[in-house]
Design a binder for these strands. Structure first.
Length: 444
RNA sequence: GGAAGCGUGGCCGAGCGGUUGAAGGCACCGGUCUUGAAAACCGGCAACGAUGCGAGUCGUUCGUGAGUUCGAAUCUCACCGCUUCCGCCA
């Protein structure tokens, strides 16, 4: 969420910056809502002040045993108008809030202007795509050849966009996650966390998935109590999602970042650095026909996520560091990759700056996203009311960042494809052998 | 699933329907004292919002939402969350 003060002070400026990411800010609507709000709010507060003053007088008079009927008559006249204003003010404030909740973050000044993926800017590269002296197979053929990857059974059990791993391949998948967690906790100073995978609507709003992107999420509904159920069907209830239902997390960013929702943390607690290994669930609505083969795009996948809560002055340095932490995993695995800085038009809703790490996939003869590292500045913190007490002793919004370190399923894909041999076997990268009981190669 | 209890400021914890934004304590900040520190003592210290150039003024907030009242932290109802006991259960 953007700061409403900034919108009031520099509406045109904000609109111009949002336009670079393809968002048309309805400035006329904002101005109209603000004008309404101002008259309603000042009138309401004026009436409240008069009522409060009169009530105070009544209290004082009664204490002295004086007659209060005259003042009482006077106050009761205020009643109707005040009631009217007190009922429309929250509606107006809610409209403004809803309007603000759907505005994406303003891109940082350093973000390249562009419309799509094609305008992203490569910042650096690691490694050289390996030359193969045989026809490369994609991860599906390799995995099926090894007898450890079975999409038919997965689709029987659940449907499309699910995968099933068996034997050493399942173990390799687990090994990758363990390796990533250990690296981040032992070498990069992150605290390991285990978090809920089902979260409430407030948490989804906090990190920006709601209200705009509900279609991307899976919602599960617990059996509500009879009373909650009747409340749900009352027309005035607008908070259906808050009663008896949860959302499956699309990323660990949601539960981990929300640890600081509605908190004021001590200055010396910053920066906070957490890592979590969780499954992620995404509906992938709107991506029909994309990446239908293999385990690139799934409804359920594993990810090791890095999250930081930092002092506002530190957030850009922290983003560079966090990106580096994710890169280390690929370096240790010996997987070629490149880093791109996303252009204004390609960034996610909540991000002010995003770097994507793309790993080389020989079978696709291209780089594919395996990590996304973003600085959200105060955008999420403002939604969450996540603050710290600054040097002056005043609460101030902190900055949040996160990045995949890395997407486990896609890393498995990259290992299979980059380490494949002519005979269909796959060499296990050195750093993983410890986690594989010393195994050096996957073969049939 | 059954029964009982509880939700107050950064934290703990008081609070007869009427100057209660809320006692007290802790933490924190400033000062006195001290060679320095600690202790002791004195003082300060909620958040959010509106308005104003500003000092300030006003409003809202005691889990959430409705209600009663001139006036609600305090009374009524519903919901949410937490705790404990019983049952069931990985």
């Amino acid at each position: 969420m953007l700061d409403i003060q900034t919108l009031r002070n520099d509406l045109a400026g904000v609109a111009a910056r949002l336009k670079t990411r393809g968002f048309e800010l309805d400035t006329a609507k904002f101005e109209q809502l603000e004008a309404e709000r101002k008259t309603i709010q000042t009138r309401t507060q004026e009436l409240q002040a008069r009522r409060n003053a009169a009530s105070k007088l009544i209290g004082q008079a009664k204490a002295k045993g004086e007659d209060v009927s005259a003042i009482m008559a006077e106050v009761s006249v205020l009643g109707d108008e005040l009631k009217k204003y007190e009922s429309i003010l929250p509606q107006t404030l809610q409209e403004i809030d809803a309007f603000l909740a759907e505005i994406p973050n303003v891109p940082h000044a350093s973000v390249p202007i562009g419309k799509s993926e094609a305008d992203n800017v490569e910042t650096h590269k690691f490694g050289e795509p390996k030359k193969f002296d045989f026809e490369v197979q994609d991860h599906v053929s390799i995995g099926e050849g090894l007898g450890g990857l079975d999409f038919d059974t997965a689709s029987k059990i659940s449907g499309a966009r699910f995968s099933l791993l068996k034997g050493p391949l399942a173990r390799l998948h687990r090994a990758l996650a363990q390796f990533m967690l250990d690296t981040h906790t032992e070498q990069h100073g992150y605290t390991e966390t285990y978090v809920p995978y089902l979260v409430n609507a407030d948490s989804m709003r906090g990190t920006g998935q709601l209200p705009k992107f509900e279609a991307d999420l899976f919602r599960v509904t617990a059996r509500p109590s009879a009373n909650a159920l009747t409340k749900m069907i009352q027309p005035e209830t607008t908070q259906f999602e808050d009663i008896g239902s949860f959302y499956l997390i699309p990323t660990a960013e949601v539960p981990v970042t929300n640890m600081v929702r509605d908190e004021i943390v001590a200055l010396e607690k910053l920066p906070m650095k957490f890592v979590a290994h969780t499954p992620c669930f995404r509906s992938e609505a709107g991506s029909y026909g994309r990446d239908t083969r293999g385990m690139i795009r799934q409804h359920q996948f594993e990810k090791v996520e890095l999250v930081q809560m930092v002092h506002p002055e530190q957030s850009y340095a922290a983003l560079e560091a966090l990106l580096g932490h994710a890169e280390v995993i690929l370096q240790k695995l010996g997987l070629p990759y490149r880093v791109v800085k996303l252009c204004t038009g390609d960034m996610g809703f909540s991000a002010a700056t995003t770097y994507d790490i793309e790993v080389w996939l020989p079978a696709q003869n291209t780089y594919r996203e395996i990590s996304s590292c973003s600085n959200f500045e105060a955008f999420q913190a403002r939604r969450m009311q996540a603050r710290f007490r600054n040097a002056a002793g005043k609460p101030e919004l902190l900055h949040t960042l996160n990045g995949s370190g890395l997407a486990v399923g896609r890393t498995l894909v990259a290992v299979l494809e980059n380490y494949q041999n002519a005979d269909g076997s796959v060499t296990i990268p050195d750093v993983l052998r410890l986690y594989m009981g010393g195994m050096e190669k996957l073969s049939k």
